[in-house]
Structure formats: C-alpha cells, structure tokens
Amino acid sequence: MTTANSPVADGRILVPGGYGAVGTAVAAILGQWFPGRVVPGGRSADRARQHGGVRVDVNDPQDFRTVLDRLGDVGAVVLCVEPPDESVARACLERGVHLVDIGADERLLGAVAALHDTALDSGASAVLSVGVAPGLSNLLARRAHEEVGGAQRIDLTVLLGSGERHGADAVRWTVAGLAAPTTARPLRVELPGHGLRTAHPFPFSDQHTLTGTLGVPRVTTRLCLDSRAATALLFGLRRTGLLRAADRPLPRRLLTDALGRVHLGGDAFVVRADAYRDGLHVARVARGLRQSRFTALVAAHVARHLLTGGPAPGVRHVEEVPALADLPERLAGDGLTVLRLTDGPR
C-alpha cells in the first residue's frame, strides 16, 4: 500500500536523457510495459514537445526538483544522463521516488550510495551500476565469484564495438578514462567470437564497486575495441603521454569530437568475468550486439523490478539485488549469449 513516504505505485516514470541513444530505447521499452506512464525529459524544450515529454535539466538541481514537484506522481526516475553531483539522486530519494542510475562515474556512484539512509527514511529504492559495464559485468562477476567459493582475484574484460554510435556523454567518459593514470598491465584474453585479444586497464567503476560489495581484494577491468586498429591507436596514444593534455578543456573537446566521428568496427560487445581462488578458475561471458541497446534493456528491467515490488528501501548496486541475479539469462531472448568457461588467462 502506498503511503506519503513511499513511491507512487502507479506513478509516472521520468527518463532524464530520454532523447539520447540509451534514453530513447529505455523510454520505448518501458512505454510498452507501462503504457501512458513514461515521460522522457531533456534540456531542449522543443524536443520535449516533440517527444511528449518535459524540459528538465539535471545540471540544475532546483529545476529538477521543480519538475518532480510539478509532475507530482512520479514513481521512478531512470537517469540516462550523468549529473554533476548527487543532488538529482537526493531530490528523488527525499521524495520517495525510486531511482535507476546508469552512470559509470566512481565518485558520483559513491556519493549516491551514501544516500542509503535517505532512501530508508522515504521508502524509496535506488539501484546503481546499471547497464553493460558496469551492470552485466557486475552480475557476471558475482556469479563467477560464487562459483569459486569466494574469489581472491577477479579480472573483468570488456570489448566494445567501435562502429557503434555512442552518445556524447559516453565519448567524453572514454576520453577521460584514457587520460587517467594506471599501474595495472594489459592482459591477453580469449573473447568468444573475437579470438585472443589484448585488453588494457581502464577505469570502469565496477572494479572499485566489487571490492566492496563482494569483498574481493583484487579486481581489475580492462578494455579493448572490436577493431584491433582502433584499440592499437587509442592505447598507443595513451603510452605516448599525449592524452594527458585531455585534462584541459580545449584538447579534451577536440579529442572528444574526433573520437565521436570515428567508426572503424562493428556493434558487437563482449563482457568477461574471470574469478580465481586457490587454483580454481571460472569465467562467465556475455556477448551481444549494440551495447547501448543492452544498457537500455538492463535499465528497463531494473526499473520494472522496482515498480512491481522490488527490493526493500535503500541504495544498492545491481549485484546486490538477488532477484536480478539471472538477468543475463533473461536477456537471451533479446540476443544476449551467456557462457561459462573454465579455462583462460591466469
């Protein structure tokens, strides 16, 4: 039963970033499951009118709060664009509105996770690390971790399609990640459908999250692209040190614009989680097409779970929600292949 301090059971679903590559797909999927309840949002008033949505700016916390209050009956927010801080999440959770966050910034995820007590007080639930990586990577890592009886080390490998058209936020995040310093080493990994590939350390948030949620002391995430040429180019630039200039606004903008125009490969993706303990080794792999579409599918499934009697109030990462453990298998009908391997990198 819905109370003043619990989410609206049959309320609307606000999708900030609802006109982007992921947000459009999220709105479409949820619109099929919850007809008439999905409200896409974005900063452009014109596009809001065209899509039957609302103008909302996650960079302006007061504007966001005003939109929530004006709509009045929002049951959940699926955040498909990254705000500068946790103010948007706070506005949702203080009002008892469920939150699904596809963000991948370690700092921001930590700030939202710290709102757990706020969610408890309002009766809302928030699920973080939602998407492919983080997201599917977290779920596969938990599965492999459990199968070896508690991993001492987890290696995550992500292959992304360099031919897929990603949103501007995703490209900017990639540029920032390439510029970030790292001490881990590249690893040669067998990726089904793509052969033996060299994957390079990359600051995905899952490797930081999983050390806490699973208690694994060593977790490293590495990245490669389906195009070997594009992988060599990007990580070759990293080795030269030229990408350190990406910390400054103009070089970062120029590099982001350049990468946004490069489409050398296809749209396949692979996520692999290798767990190790005292000589035991299990790998879980998921592969599919169009990473942005599967990010949207994961987000939509999580939102549906929250709106139909999901986890108890509080803030959790996706791997901490038991009912979502089999989500990779549930996505088989959408074209996701899930494999279990027992050999691979050591």
Rank of each mutant, 00 (worst) to 15 (best):
M1V: 09
A4N: 14
G17C: 01
Y19E: 02
Y19H: 03
A25G: 05
A27Q: 00
I29Y: 02
G53N: 01
R55S: 09
D57R: 02
Q62F: 13
L71D: 04
L79Y: 03
P84H: 15
C92F: 02
D101A: 00
I102R: 00
D105R: 10
A113N: 14
H116L: 14
T118G: 10
T118V: 15
L120E: 15
S129V: 10
V132K: 07
S137C: 08
R143L: 13
G150Q: 07
A151M: 11
T157I: 08
L160C: 03
T174F: 14
A199I: 01
P201Q: 03
F202P: 02
S205F: 01
G215M: 07
V216W: 01
P217V: 04
V219S: 01
S227N: 07
G236R: 14
A245H: 08
A246I: 08
L255I: 09
L259G: 14
G260P: 08
V270E: 07
V271M: 08
A273V: 05
D274G: 12
D274R: 12
H281G: 06
A286K: 12
R287T: 06
V298R: 02
H317T: 04
H317F: 09
E319K: 03
A323R: 10
L324E: 03
L331P: 04
G333I: 08
T337H: 10
R346F: 13
